[in-house]
Design a protein around this nucleic acid. Structure first.
Length: 571
RNA sequence: GGUGGGGUAGCUCAGCUGGUUAGAGCGCAGGACUCAUAAUCCUGAGGUCGGGGGUUCAAGUCCCCCUCCCACUACCA
């Protein structure tokens, strides 16, 4: 038994997330959380919406809403989408909650006291028409290098050169289009990450079990030299910068913390809110002096978030010199690509969570996205693969197995688990197969190797079909009902086992299977023990039902329709 | 430009510190079975492991060069 703290990278507030976001952090974290719970570990799975920053303000403006109200609305929308996908958060909080604000202000003060934060003056473009400072990417103008007229302040999309917004010719606001912009001096707090380089490198080098993707990105940044980052912005929406008395710091009116400073802190804030609402003890998860030293902390994220989780946030934690829990394991994912390109919110490319749930049950998506998780490299999404995964793995291998044996039992044995029969070669083969595969399945889950865990899950399901072919109860039934009975009995127990191992990834279908077969709640955990006993776990005489059809197949017409509707197949 | 990740059977991908005839799923071909969602099971055909050079008794696996794809490049999250 261990205590495992799990967080998935905070989904940003400006819209319902697409399947790439789901596959890269929330879903694998959920599957892992479920598996660890089944193995008897004490799990706390925390997530939250990331609500601060310029895009939130602009999205609210576009929706013609106040930012706070917009965030309220989108938080609920994301919470609902998560619930529809069965994401089993222990708590789904918000980075805009007071808890995170207090912690953020606390960390900033402690870091400044420790000499890791200092105030500096920088130049920033101010738009008079918009009444706001503009982040680099919201300033557009003519590229000084190639003459492209819609170059962004941070980079020219035409020639690819990195730019500084003050170099743009005839700059204008990308928000309003106004050319009434000017460069102003503005003071900000800087996090002196460079001072932490050595400690961070030592820590990264000492970390084991990180995927190469995570450690290589962290080391790359360290090798290039960490730059000191501004952690405040000229915005209204966010966490105010305060002094020791809790008042707004002098000269920081109209400024707030940068979202990437406070977002990871929301992991802690959300845990506090979980504790408040559930009579829990947040300190035992986050304070190493209050019991968190035995916690195994695992973070899930897309590759774009690695640097923040391996460098920026650890700087905050370590630099505080307070006994906060640091991350132990990171699981970083590549992208799910959409017909050769990226999923894109702005261009409406790809499938979003709310649309996905409309066209297929969550289990279908969960299985497909995990079986094809972008672990080693980017993974291509195609409708044909989705169809093939669902039809072959879920409908044919698992669904049909459950269906064939339960219906046969109902038809020939009145739905009662039969006694009798003697174990032979088929049974020996099955025991060996399961004895070999179940430990591997557990190992893959523990190592967070999702593709392999799914392949193993499928292989175990397939072994059930193979066993039935060998045992052939329908053949024995004609001459020796007892011999047919052992095949049916083991088949039914396999149904139960298949449901049990399916729980982390396809919880809805697994629940239906286990309910139909009558496996009580307290017998659904992953304490496998002797394989022989697993095959006789259901009591003789116990009544089972044939569940409703678990998975209906995805027809060609659906694929065609979705391809048409979502624009899949374009270059 | 820099950095990182990729280029392995028709498709999607495994192949850790180099070592017997390079693997899986899907698809395809043939066969078996008939309990089942025309499902399942068995067998098989398919690869000069992006290209070239090198190290080694031995390289998909290490080194160099070339080439193609993707991501990141820090005030976008």
């Amino acid at each position: 038994m261990s205590r495992i703290l799990i967080t998935s990278a905070l989904p940003y507030i400006n819209g319902v997330k697409h399947l790439g976001n789901l596959a890269g952090s929330m879903l694998p974290a959920d599957v892992y959380a479920r598996a660890m719970r089944l193995m008897g570990h004490e799990v706390l799975y925390i997530c939250a919406t990331d609500e601060h920053g310029t895009p939130a303000e602009l999205a609210a403006q576009a929706a013609n809403m106040e930012v706070a109200a917009y965030c309220d609305k989108m938080h609920e929308a994301q919470k609902q989408a998560g619930a529809q996908f069965g994401l089993s958060y222990d708590y789904f909080g918000r980075s805009s909650a007071p808890s995170t604000a207090r912690l953020t202000q606390h960390f900033a003060q402690v870091l400044e006291k420790n000499g890791l934060i200092e105030e500096r003056v920088s130049k920033q473009v101010y738009s008079n028409a918009d009444g706001r400072y503009l982040p680099d990417r919201y300033v557009e103008g003519t590229c000084p290098n190639c003459g492209f007229e819609k170059a962004r302040g941070d980079q020219c999309d035409s020639c690819g050169k990195l730019l500084d917004p003050v170099d743009l010719i005839d700059p204008y606001s990308a928000v309003s289009g106004s050319h009434d912009v000017e460069v102003r001096d503005t003071n900000h707090l800087y996090l002196l990450q460079s001072k932490m380089s050595d400690r961070l490198r030592e820590w990264v080098n000492a970390s084991t079990g990180w995927p190469p993707l995570a450690s290589s990105i962290a080391l790359k940044w360290l090798d290039e030299g960490l730059r000191d980052r501004s952690i405040t912005r000229d915005l209204d929406w966010g966490i105010p910068v305060t002094d020791l008395d809790g008042n707004v710091r002098d000269g920081f009116e109209g400024k707030v913390f940068y979202v990437w400073f406070d977002a990871p802190i929301a992991y802690i804030g959300a845990t506090q809110d979980w504790a408040t609402e559930n009579d829990g003890d947040w300190e035992s998860w986050w304070r190493t002096d209050k019991g968190a030293d035995d916690v195994d902390y695992v973070q899930f994220m897309g590759k774009d978030n690695v640097a923040f989780h391996t460098l920026s946030f650890p700087t905050t934690i370590m630099g505080s010199e307070e006994p906060w829990k640091l991350v132990d394991q990171l699981k970083a994912f590549n992208w799910v690509t959409w017909y050769g390109g990226k999923f894109s919110t702005s261009q409406g490319r790809g499938v979003f969570m709310d649309q996905a749930i409309e066209i297929a049950p969550s289990d279908y998506w969960r299985w497909y996205l995990m079986a094809n998780a972008p672990e080693g490299s980017d993974a291509a999404f195609t409708w044909e693969d989705f169809q093939s995964s669902v039809n072959s793995d879920l409908a044919n291998v698992l669904g049909n197995f459950v269906n064939r044996i339960t219906k046969y039992c109902v038809g020939k044995f009145d739905g009662v688990v039969p006694s009798g029969g003697e174990a032979g070669e088929a049974e020996e083969w099955l025991v060996n197969e399961l004895s070999d595969r179940l430990p591997k399945l557990i190992k893959f889950y523990e190592a967070r190797d999702f593709r392999k865990a799914m392949a193993e899950t499928r292989a175990i399901w397939a072994a059930g079909n193979e066993y039935l072919t060998q045992a052939a109860p329908w053949t024995h039934y004609k001459t020796d009902v007892d011999q047919a009975a052992i095949g049916v009995r083991h088949g039914l127990n396999l149904v139960a086992l298949f449901g049990i191992i399916a729980q982390p990834v396809i919880p809805d279908a697994a629940g239906k299977i286990l309910d139909a077969i009558g496996v009580p709640e307290d017998r659904r955990s992953w304490n496998f023990g002797e394989v022989k006993d697993l095959l006789d776990a259901l009591p003789i005489g116990h009544t089972v039902a044939a569940p409703e059809l678990l998975f209906s197949k995805i027809e060609e017409e659906s694929v065609a329709e979705w391809t048409e509707r979502f624009g899949g197949g374009e270059a």
